[in-house]
Amino acid sequence: MKNIWTIAKREYNNYFNGPLAYIVALVIFFSVGAFFVNLLLYGQQQGMYGAPAPDPNFLNVVFVFLMLFLSPAITMRLLSDEARMGTLELLLTAPVRDFELVAGKWLGSVLFVLTLVAFSLIYPIIYNNFITPHIDYKLLISSYIAVILMTFALLGLGVGISAMFSNQFASYFIALGLFFILWFVIGIPANFMSSGGEIFSYMSISDHFTAINTGTVKLGDIVYFLSLTAFGLFVGTTAIEIRRWR
């Protein structure tokens, strides 16, 4: 377990050595910030008419939507680059289990995104000062649980894909394609099927996210996200093992 932490720590610090972390942060805070300004103006306007201000949860939808495109960039390097640079040989001959390596990489990327998530809390805090009645805190917490679970799952799958390819760009586009399907495409058949469509809507990541983000935290949704995460880490570990046998 100590190895996971050692690897995660290095990976976390490593993000700030390159431009990627700052680009990701810039894109997120610029976009979410634009929606925030909008929300602030609209919320005050509603207040003037005596209507309740809208929830700030929509900001997290923007955050997560951007993460669909940005998280493959965050994870693409993690194992692909080690394989390309040959440093994987070093890690695979150190007394580190394959799972610890994959989990450490994942945890490092999760910590990085959670740092951004923590910074994004500034929006609802500011928003709270401008509206009456104040924010529904339970709803806000639920929304952030959704963001965190989403982060776990996207980065877990991303790490798994990164372990399969030595080329970063292959990792990026495969992960991007997968997230696109999970978010937009996979739920579509459910609309056309008279029966059995539940399977497709259960697989859709956006349905689960929306459910928790709008305040219904159900065990089924949590299990869905955690199983995606575990699946990603399992695929990653298996890919590393296959590398050894090849």
Partner: peptide, 14 residues
């Protein structure tokens, strides 16, 4: 692996 020190052919470094 705990007992072996290894220097690969292409020295892998960060």
């Amino acid at each position: 692996r705990k007992r072996v020190g290894y220097l690969p052919e292409t020295v892998p470094l960060y």
